[in-house]
Each structure stands twice: as C-alpha cells, then as structure tokens.
C-alpha cells in the first residue's frame, strides 16, 4: 500500500492543510457522537465523568481548535489504561483524591462542583513549583493526567492540524527549509 504512494507532486500545499482541518472537523463531530455511545473498559461511570470534565479543563476548545473530548482524549486514556496496567492504580487513586478534595472543600464530588470551585482546586495542583507539600498526591496525579491529555490531544487529527505539522508526506526532493522558516531563525543556506 505504502509503496504505491505516488512520489511526484507531493509537496504539501494549502489545500492539504485545509483538507486536514476539514477532516479534523469531521472527527470532532464523530468524537462528540462517540462520547455518547462509548463504553469505557477501565473507567467506572463516575470516573468517566471526571475524566471528561478534567480533560477539557486541561485542553479546552478555543478559536483555533476543539477540546480534549472533541479530539477523543478520554477514549484514548481508557485504551492506554487497559494497555498499560501499571498506570491503572495511580489513575484510579488520583481521580478518587480529586473527589475527596472536592468533597472536603465544597461538599460535593469534583464534577458536581461549580466551575470556579473546580479551577480553584486545579490552581493548587497544576503548578508543581508553587504547590504546597500537602498537595503532593494531587500534583503528581495532575502532572500525569496533563501529560496523558497532551499525548492524546496533540497526536489526534485535531491536534496535528492545530500544530500545523506538515510532514509525514513523501517528497520528490529535499530542498531544505523554506525561506520564511530560515528568516525566523536568522539563518541561510550559503
């Protein structure tokens, strides 16, 4: 299949980027639909709600691209938990820690807390250098959760289109980097 890829006229064009964005939009819709139908294999129903809420707090939708749930990050996380069993216990304990903290502070589980309460809790665990030692379990959990969210989001169609990664495409010739990219770094070909 791959061998048959035509080697001529393969330089990436604006059209390719547009096509990538369009397909990202399709996936976005698909992910939203999947979110309804998807049955997680690892996460419980309660955990699933927390994961979806938390993932979108980590990477929300903005003007340039969709959110973590738009990109299928919770589904990705569920797969990873099943594929790497060593990651299960820290994830489960971390999600439980989030609920325990939310209950102690706000009298309700994390997903039921108000948006301002949720971000107040995140502010205490999302900045490792500033966090207090009492927050250590939360910091460790959130660091892992953020990294996993980033892995799932930026490796998705939506994430790759957002980053404008232009490779993974056979080139008929290598002509070096384009003038604008060279100029940005202040370098040139001699």
């Amino acid at each position: 299949m791959l061998v048959a890829a035509p080697l001529a006229a393969l330089a990436i064009s604006l059209e390719d980027v547009e096509r990538a964005s369009a397909s990202a939009a399709n996936v976005l819709q698909g992910a939203q639909q999947r979110g309804q139908a998807f049955r997680p294999k690892f996460f419980t129903a309660g955990e699933w709600r927390t994961v979806r809420t938390l993932a979108d707090l980590v990477i929300p939708r903005d003007a340039r691209s969709g959110s973590a749930t738009d990109a299928g990050v919770p589904e990705f996380m569920d797969f990873i938990m099943m594929a790497y069993p060593d990651m299960q216990q820290p994830m489960r304990e971390g999600l439980a820690w989030m609920d325990a903290q939310a209950k102690a502070r706000f009298g309700k589980v994390f997903v039921a807390a108000a948006a301002t309460q949720q971000t107040k809790l995140l502010d205490d665990i999302a900045y490792p250098k500033k966090a207090t030692s009492a927050m250590k379990p939360g910091v460790e959990f959130f660091t892992r959760f953020r990294n996993l969210t980033a892995s799932g989001f930026w490796s998705s169609r939506i994430g790759i289109a957002d980053l404008q990664y232009m490779g993974n495409s056979p080139q008929a010739a290598w002509n070096g980097c384009p003038p604008a990219a060279l100029a940005k770094l202040g370098v040139k070909y001699s």
Binding site: Y127, R146, N147, A150, S151, G159
Partner: peptide, 20 residues
C-alpha cells in the same frame, strides 16, 4: 507529534509552569 508530546511543558523556561 505522537505519544509523549509536550511531556516537559511544566518545566520549560518562561512557560506558565504547567497549569491548564
């Protein structure tokens, strides 16, 4: 970009230090 992308973001000089 693939699995592991952005793993060091919280410690990048001048970044917001992790966050969300």
């Amino acid at each position: 970009p693939s699995y592991g992308f952005g793993g060091g973001i919280a410690t990048m000089p001048g970044s917001i230090g992790g966050g969300y």
